[in-house]
Computed example of a mutant assay.
Amino acid sequence: MPCVDVKMKLTDNVIRNFKVAKIFRENTDRINSLDFAANGETLISSSDDESIVIYDCQNGTPKRTLNSKKYGVDLIRYTHAVNTALHSSTKVDDTIRYLSLHDNKYIRYFPGHTKKVVSLCMSPINDSFLSGSLDKTIRLWDLRSQNCQGLMYLPGRPVAAFDSEGLIFAAGINSESVKLYDLRSFDRGPFTTFRLPQDKDCDWTGMKFSADGKLILISTNGQVMRLIDAFQGTPLQTFMGHTNNKGIPLEASFSPDAQFVFSGSTDGRIHCWNAETGAKVVVLNCDHPGPVQCVQFNPKYMMLATACTNMAFWLPYIDE
């Protein structure tokens, strides 16, 4: 399964020629999150079957499987050291856990949230990370300390994300406003707030900045996703046409060049839109028997990963 360097230009035609290169059936239940290493060489996933699977992206093989039977596992995230990861818990309590993948031992626990953690985001530049919970708080942490470094109380369900330079973070609140905070002075409150028409039919369930920091992508548990300008808050696109008739959070992701947006759907298909025009580029079909909740593009290689209970690796097949 040879990976092509992502420096090869992504075009509508390249995207339309993506095909499944490998399907993995390592899991017995829904894969609830996945994360590429920054170097693009490995992918880590967590599942409702309480397992963590690490994949080798260049060889297209599963490398290791670890289990978290005691606490369950959700929202798995690589830290900057490729042999460690953060994850939220599905059992016992809502503590965030810092795991050594090398020996499957916990390095540190981060207690504080009193309800399910629904947002977990690692800083792109240092050991800081953000968490958001159904307890209506966002917490700022440092991997080196179990004590929360900052705490924000919110009027509703939060989503949170760092920008690509790790200097600011965005908090999406109550599915209607985006607040931007400077990390060095976040305790003074947001430096800007964008109000959007409230999504009455769905909740915001995810938020991501594009790699160039110019765009913010908001995913939901409904039939829409929103793209806004990260500086002005101007609504740019509303992406629709994918199926979500189960009210579940579907992950949306940018391509590394921010030209394209990908999302799964509850009917097992993958949808791709042009970020600039909002036009649907392609609907990719796969053998996903269930809802595709996880979709991410490799940051370094021309490879897409999508997951339901199965994990699929996609590559472009283009006739020269």
Rank of each mutant, 00 (worst) to 15 (best):
K7F: 11
T11G: 04
N13A: 12
V14C: 07
I15Q: 01
R16I: 01
K19M: 03
K19T: 06
V20Y: 03
E26S: 14
D29W: 00
I31W: 01
E41H: 10
T42I: 14
L43H: 08
S47D: 01
Y55H: 09
Y55L: 06
P62V: 13
K63L: 14
K63M: 13
N67S: 14
Y78I: 10
V82C: 13
N83F: 11
T84C: 07
L86D: 06
H87E: 09
S88N: 07
I96G: 08
H102Q: 15
R108K: 15
V118H: 00
C121Q: 09
D135S: 04
L143N: 07
G150D: 08
L151C: 13
L154M: 13
V159H: 02
A160C: 13
A161L: 03
A161R: 00
F169H: 10
I173H: 03
N174L: 00
L183S: 12
R188Q: 15
W204A: 07
K214R: 15
G222T: 02
L227P: 02
T234W: 00
L236I: 12
Q237H: 09
G241E: 01
G241H: 00
H242D: 04
N245K: 08
F262P: 09
I270E: 02
E276R: 13
T277S: 14
T277L: 03
K280C: 09
V281I: 14
P289W: 08
P291H: 06
V292E: 01
C294T: 14
A305N: 05
T306F: 03
T306L: 02
A307N: 01
T309N: 13
M311R: 05
